[in-house]
């Protein structure tokens, strides 16, 4: 691709990410949502996090990988336990990263 085409792509793609992020806040901030919509929206966060967690563990490279050779599944177990036990993001992250580093260097 020519340098010019790459620049046009960059600008086009940045507009395509700008609009869906900015528009809802700009449009809906002055608008009173009905109660049922607020309730619906309150469930978006747990739904998104459930989906994100599942995908990041079971499809770490963008494709489903459900097998004992998927290190993410093994690292998931201690990480979840620490998260529930400590409710500390720092400790959870430390244990998760350490678990993955150990698994990777020991098994691979």
């Amino acid at each position: 691709m020519s340098s010019e085409a790459i620049w046009i792509t960059i600008i086009g793609v940045s507009l395509a990410t700008l609009i869906p992020r900015i528009l809802p806040v700009a449009l809906f901030s002055g608008f009173e949502f009905p109660k049922i919509v607020i309730k619906w929206l309150s469930y978006v966060a747990p739904a998104v996090l459930g989906a994100l967690t599942a995908l990041s563990i079971l499809a770490p490279a963008g494709e489903l990988h459900i097998s004992v050779s998927n290190l993410y599944i093994w690292a998931f177990i201690p990480t979840l336990l620490v998260a529930i036990k400590t409710r500390s993001l720092f400790l959870t992250l430390s244990v998760g990263i350490a678990a993955m580093a150990i698994l990777y260097n020991v098994i691979m």
Binding site: T79, L80, L89, G96
Partner: peptide, 11 residues
């Protein structure tokens, strides 16, 4: 595993 761990904890 940093981001998966973060998602787990935030969830």
């Amino acid at each position: 595993f940093a981001l998966p761990a973060m998602y787990i904890c935030l969830l």
